[in-house]
Amino acid sequence: MSDLHHISGVAALRDTVARIEAGRSGAPRRRAASGPPPVGLGDGALPLDAALGGGLRRGALHEVVAEDARDAAAAAGFALAAAGRCAGPAPLVWIVEDHAAAETGLPYRPGLAAHGIDPDRLILVRTGDGPATLWALEEALRLGAPAVLAELWSAKPYGLAPSRRLLLAAQNGRGAAILLHAGLAGRGAGLSSAAETRLAVAACPSPRLASAGSRVPIPGPPAVAVRVLKLRLGGEADLDRDRRHALVWNQHRRCFDAHALPVGVSAPAADGPRPARRSASVVAFGARAG
């Protein structure tokens, strides 16, 4: 009987190993179904949402970084709109450092509304420096804030240990944490953290609208191009970090739509020799007034 038990145990072990190997070589891993469903950045079949496994998860830490210093406004606008999507009808906590508020101004009510955020349901937190920003973000998550947007201007206080604390706080409070690395433009690929996702955002030519009485078209809704640099629970091996998802913000539906204009193909310049990628940037993506 002992030999039969031994043979049966070896066969079961072989079956288990075979299933594990099949899982490694088969379809990409999917994120766990436990917890609240992810929040889609779009209302329909948005390719970026599909790449993220459905959208941005609550109970997780998400990072946003600009592709280039000139894309800082686009990254900030995208992060704010994404945070508004995660908050939904609940209050949104926005953490801003004092020096940034002094330079860019306080939130502008029409700008907030354009991003799908009710100005009366915004909780603005002012901090003195990076460590205070991370502390405020962690405490807001622990207190159960549904969504928190924090701007971090220095990478010195950030790393694996602080990001791990933020992740645990988000998991315990079941809120979505969106950390905008305002001081790391162009350096998102080299960042090491426990965040679930990291998105690199660049300005993108917006759809053009017909002008009233002029042949020169005017810029339409704000648009961005987004790359997924990190997807911790979505199958890193199959992640295409070079793919740019072109998105346009739909103010009326308060979501992102797929942008019809291919990213990387410059539109004809209407008023000068400057590349259309910069001349048609996301100037409407602004929720502050100096």
Rank of each mutant, 00 (worst) to 15 (best):
R30E: 07
Q171M: 12
N172I: 13
A289L: 15
L137Y: 03
S163Y: 09
A182I: 03
A87L: 08
A267P: 04
P131T: 03
S154E: 11
P275E: 04
D71M: 08
D118H: 03
R30T: 11
L106Y: 12
L180P: 02
R254M: 08
R85P: 06
P275W: 04
Q171K: 14
L141K: 01
A22S: 11
R70H: 15
A79N: 05
R288D: 06
G286T: 12
S214G: 03
R19F: 06
G105M: 10
L239D: 00
D271S: 15
A169P: 02
R164Y: 02
I123E: 09
E97F: 05
P268Y: 03
P205V: 10
A32H: 11
E151Q: 13
T104A: 15
G213M: 01
T127D: 09
A202V: 09
A27R: 14
R277E: 15
E21S: 08
L4E: 14
A81T: 10
A225V: 04
E196Q: 13
S163W: 09
P219T: 09
L112I: 03
C86H: 04
A60D: 10
S193W: 07
A11R: 13
R85A: 14
L112M: 10
R14L: 14
R85I: 04
G130S: 01
T104Y: 14
A289F: 15
A101N: 07
A161W: 12
L46S: 05
A170H: 00
S25K: 10
D43I: 11
P36E: 12
R57K: 02
R121T: 02
L229S: 06
A210L: 12
L209Y: 03
A11E: 12
A225T: 02
A101P: 08
A200Q: 11
V248R: 07
L191N: 05
G183I: 05
P37Y: 08
P219Y: 03
L180D: 10
E63G: 01
R57S: 10
P119L: 02
A114K: 09
G144P: 02
P162F: 07
L166V: 01
Y158P: 07
V65H: 07
C86Y: 02
H6F: 13
E67V: 13
A102D: 11
G220K: 00
I123Q: 12
R14G: 08
G44R: 14
R244W: 13
S154C: 09
E138P: 00
R253F: 00
P36C: 00
E139N: 12
S193G: 07
H5R: 13
R14A: 14
R244Q: 12
G186V: 02
V265H: 07
G186H: 05
A276V: 06
D98P: 05
T133K: 04
L61S: 06
L141H: 01
D240V: 04
G44W: 08
R198V: 05
A22W: 00
V224C: 09
G105E: 05
L52N: 11
A200Y: 05
S211K: 01
G190H: 10
G84V: 02
R70W: 14
R278C: 08
L80C: 04
D120S: 08
D238I: 10
